[in-house]
Amino acid sequence: MKVALLSESPADEAVLRELVAAVLREPPRFTGAGLRARGWPNVAQVLPAVIRHLHFNTDTDTLVVTVDSDDSVVHVAAHEAPNYFHPQCRLCQLRAVFRQTTKKLPPAHGRARVLRCVGVAVPALEAWLLCGRDPAVTEAAWVEGQASGRAPYSRAELKWRVYGTDRPSLPYEIQRATEEIRRHRSDPRRLEADFPGFGAMARDLRENREMMARGEHLHR
């Protein structure tokens, strides 16, 4: 599977590379240089152009996109209902962008479309990095905090817990992020369970692999 990554920083990209390999249980081929967006809502703004670029100009099979949820509505099981779309849920929004963009595209490079793989880190990628290290950091804890009006932690606190500062240098951020995410390299199920926003991404990846194995992504 040839995978393209759309992320917010080199550190996020390093994490995604590890996670994609962990889910697929094999080192994937990545499409050239990482594609970048400047946070939300820029990700959603550039995503249609990125999809079209990958579709027409590359032989990419899957585009992996992740964003931080920040304080937005967290994706829950109810959002998975057929034809359901929550306008404040970033996972729903990104999936909608994929859907709307790819349905207009003619086949290219022998495949019908670039396959979707979307994840949302709740509330930020550093929460994923703390999975298994700090049992209090889970997507459920964040959702509960949103409901009660008392956030269990802030984005800055998560950074402090991972990096020991909220102003890490980029090389140190990449080093620490890679160290932490590699704990899940052999078995990402804990991360999937504690963070359904990652589980959605992992599910997309596996379904894409199966779809490709069946040849369903090809244009016939």
């Binding site: 920083s9 970048r36 500062t165 102003r167 890490p168 240098s169």
Partner: peptide, 20 residues
């Protein structure tokens, strides 16, 4: 623009030496 983070960090190195 992709190197601006590095520029910011270079000055953070001066302003927040303990973080480095």
């Amino acid at each position: 623009p992709r190197l601006l983070r590095e520029i910011r960090d270079a000055f953070y190195r001066l302003s927040y030496p303990q973080s480095f």
